[in-house]
Amino acid sequence: MAATHTDKTFENDLRALREKLLAMGARVEEQIALSVRALTERDTALPARVKASDREVNVLEIEVDDLCRKILALRQPAASDLRFITTALKIVVDLERIGDLAVNIAERAADLNEAPPLKQYQDTPRLAEMAQQQVRRALDAFVAGDTAKAEDVLRGDDHLDDLFVKIFNELLTYMMEDSRNIRRANALLSIAKHLERIGDHAVNLAEMVIYMVRGTDIRHARSRGLEWVE
């Protein structure tokens, strides 16, 4: 965005909004990392940190909503500004939800840390890394208005889904082997499912970025009878 708004206070409001969204994004990325470390490092202090971080995310969500409403009411934004603000209002919902999922992961990790580990954790940290990377990429795409990067996120989701299926099948074998494994395997399954869901939220973010930049909505192409080829 080369040209700036003639009205500097409007420009400042938009910048503040962008910064709040980025701060929120950075927080949730950190939450994902911490929640999975709570599992892999069996660190009992980390879940509390994830929850504390989630409170900050919740506060940011409300601040972003307030700021968007203020801008809509006072500035009647148009064109790319309008798309940015309506996108911001939706992005916060996904970001906040990712934060909640990270809290759920941390809670499951806390449960798991009460018992001996079921197995060596390899795939779960990988899935977490992938989910976190998807979120980061979607946020980078948002900041830079980079639709190519957003499309990378859309394509990247298949890898998460594949790994999730692999983890699911493996955990099933643990459960079938010994019913005493079920509780822990189920907790691990929940964590994997939450990570897979985080990946889906990253896809939502990427779709919104594409709308924000191009002004065309690519969501639910099939439902709307549209041809959409990647």
């Binding site: 040209a3 700036t4 708004h5 003639t6 009205d7 409007f10 934004p77 148009a78 064109a79 790319s80 500004d81 309008l82 798309r83 002004g215 065309t216």
Partner: peptide, 19 residues
């Protein structure tokens, strides 16, 4: 025009970026 103008100058005008 007000949600997705094609021209940069229109975009700048409707978003208030003209001096």
């Amino acid at each position: 025009i007000f949600t997705n103008p094609r021209e940069k100058r229109t975009e700048d005008y409707v978003t208030g970026k003209f001096g």
